[in-house]
Write a protein that binds this DNA or RNA. Structure first.
Lengths: 164, 164
DNA sequence: CGCAGATAGTTTAATATTAAATAGTTGTGA
DNA sequence: TCACAACTATTTAATATTAAACTATCTGCG
């Protein structure tokens, strides 16, 4: 609700942009969440499967970085996916601290079934934006994310956020 | 991680914009959350106090709409704020179904203390964007939100999202 | 070698959030 | 008048998420 706050022009602009960004993201998230729930996956679970599909097997720590989630949360997500037989844990033999998580055939089939519909839903949700606007949105959000990451240097790894 | 998916140009662009939007919002949210936690407020609690400060007393349903939260959640948020003595519940005498939530003097003092720092933090987080970019970001996110709302007509009220 | 410190994953406790069921209130129409 | 539909708020049960404590493993240095 931008915005009943009175401040400098810069402040008001930043606040308005911030709030609007959040409302859009919130709305998008709840739509996606509802859609995926109906298919029997949480957003987190979907994220894990999608990452494994497109990036290949990963250890849990790497998954956590990709999905911006805590280690404990990843453990639970992988637990639940494992119970459903969609992923498998493999203890790394070279360094036994690591566990590689990989898609089972069932999991690969599942995410391949679900993913296209997810993309289609996103494309539909983004349909009100022109090509130029999509490009601008991405550019600005990237710049924003990068700006924040630089500011507060407490990332777990320096490379993961800037690459890809 | 935009994006290892191969599709039409339109699909890839929509997906990239979507993912980047989310990562930015996620990062912003976790920063804000950490900052507010340190001050003894959750994001939800802050949202309630801020809404009451800038919009005046509201019933719980209206709060839920503003904050995009469920009724049950609002009940809990208000419970916790009430325990801290920051808000008060007043049963509407004309229509006893409604409960008006309003800031206590303590609550007003508290949110007035916390809000400027919050704004400052947001301005800092948005600092990497130019004035033009802030305007563009707001415009695009608004358009996006509006586009989604139109598509799926299941809003509780029609006016709340478009106004203010 | 052997221990100190770092790192990966798990567990635990607390909190937030939602959906669904429930209780109380209002207004309407037979 | 009264039964019923609509609506507000609360409760309940389930799930997601985090932070912090903990276990297991590895690496490097004395």
């Amino acid at each position: 609700m931008p915005s009943h706050y009175r401040g400098t022009e810069r402040e008001v602009r930043a606040l308005n942009a911030y709030i609007t960004l959040f409302r859009a993201a919130d709305t998008l998230a709840s739509r996606s969440s509802a859609r995926l729930d109906a298919l029997g996956l949480t957003i987190g679970q979907f994220g894990v499967l999608e990452a494994l599909l497109h990036l290949g097997p990963l250890c849990q720590r790497a998954l956590g970085e990709k999905l911006l989630r805590t280690g404990g949360n990843i453990t639970l997500l992988v637990d639940n996916l494992e119970k459903q037989g969609l992923v498998r844990r493999v203890r790394d033999t070279a360094d036994r601290r690591y566990i590689t998580v990989l898609l089972t055939p069932k999991g690969k089939k599942r995410i391949r079934q679900v993913f296209p519909g997810h993309v289609a839903a996103i494309v539909r949700q983004m349909a009100s934006l022109s090509r130029t606007e999509l490009k601008a949105l991405r550019r600005i959000c990237r710049k924003l994310g990068r700006g924040i990451a630089e500011k507060t240097n407490r990332e777990t790894t320096h490379d993961s956020s800037s690459s890809q």
